[in-house]
């Protein structure tokens, strides 16, 4: 498998702990990380990002705009209609997954994650 070029990953999470862990893991794997601290900010960052991210990783429970809202918003944007969005959630229950899926999530990562699982999930949609 060839080494991926420096890809940008947009992480959207209101928890600084989670954001730090994501940044740690992703930068360690050679990705560039841009962050949004809630859904609204995430969408703003996405619109402004140059170059745009190759994938979005978003939390579900967030103030202002939750993860479902983020996915729906992304799917409505012409430029990002097909951008992979991976939801990050502690809930392993089907209900959350199904809702995220219906909103247009590409996949999910269950917290707590390890960096290997995170990176392979990103590779799954960016190679």
């Amino acid at each position: 498998m060839t080494e991926t070029p420096t890809l940008r990953v947009l992480t959207i999470d209101d928890s600084r702990t989670m954001q730090s862990m994501l940044r740690n893991a992703l930068e360690g794997a050679g990705y560039e990380v841009i962050q949004g601290n809630d859904g609204v900010e995430g969408i703003d960052v996405l619109e402004a990002a140059t170059p745009p991210p190759a994938v979005i990783i978003t939390d579900i429970n967030m103030p202002r705009l939750d993860g479902f809202g983020v996915i729906e918003a992304v799917r409505k944007m012409d430029r990002f209609r097909h951008l992979p969005v991976i939801v990050l959630t502690t809930e392993s229950d089907q209900e959350k997954k199904a809702r995220a899926r219906a909103a247009g999530a590409t996949g999910w990562i269950i917290k707590p994650f390890n960096s290997d699982s995170l990176v392979s999930a990103i590779r799954r949609v960016t190679q």
Partner: peptide
């Protein structure tokens, strides 16, 4: 790969400023 292509897109300076 989609990412390489999306990289070519024009920067949208105005939106950038709004976000800042």
């Amino acid at each position: 790969p989609p990412a390489t292509i999306q990289r070519d897109e024009e920067p949208i300076a105005l939106t950038g400023a709004t976000v800042a």
